[in-house]
Amino acid sequence: MMKKHHHQSALLILIFFFLTSISACHKDDESPETPQETPNEEEVITTCKLVFTDVSGTTIDTIAVYRDPDGDGGNAPVQFDTIHLHASTTYTTEIILLNETVSPADSISNEVLEESQDHLFCFHVVDANVSITRTDSDGTFEIGLQSEWITTTASTGTVTVTLKHQPGIKDGTCDPGDTDVEIQFPMVIVE
């Protein structure tokens, strides 16, 4: 009699497993006919603005912009300025990063400031007579959202602005982490 019961319970267990699983059904909630409006990669950086302010106030403030409103790929950048600065001048420079795929545009530089312990801007100058110093700090290391650019003589070259994402590995140098922004701006310094 015991054995018979074993059979019945085994049979019931198997039927139970079978019925519960066959009724399980994962579903796609989206419909293929209605694709999402914008192919959004969360927090795309579309725009990088460098805002230069002459400390002495003798020359007009200047802005250099890299702007690719549809993000990576697609159309080429719509604006890619050359940095025009005056010789023998000291500028304070602010970097503004925007996501213009959303409306109103989202300020990524504010997010960078909030997570300043994880971010570092680096500047690499070639052939242009300018020295750049980061002037802000996350408490331990510099950030680079604010910087001081001191020009000397007239020259032509490039400045590469890089934003490194260094979560938990920031050590004040540009080596660790992944690159979020890397723009090589042409630069002209005139007398």
Binding site: D28, E30, S31, P32, E33, T34, P35, Q36, P39, N40, E41, E42
Partner: peptide, 15 residues
């Protein structure tokens, strides 16, 4: 077959 995506674009929706 129906294919949809959410998030970053890699391949479009299709049937």
């Amino acid at each position: 077959q129906a294919n949809t995506y959410e998030g970053r674009f890699v391949i479009p929706n299709y049937e």
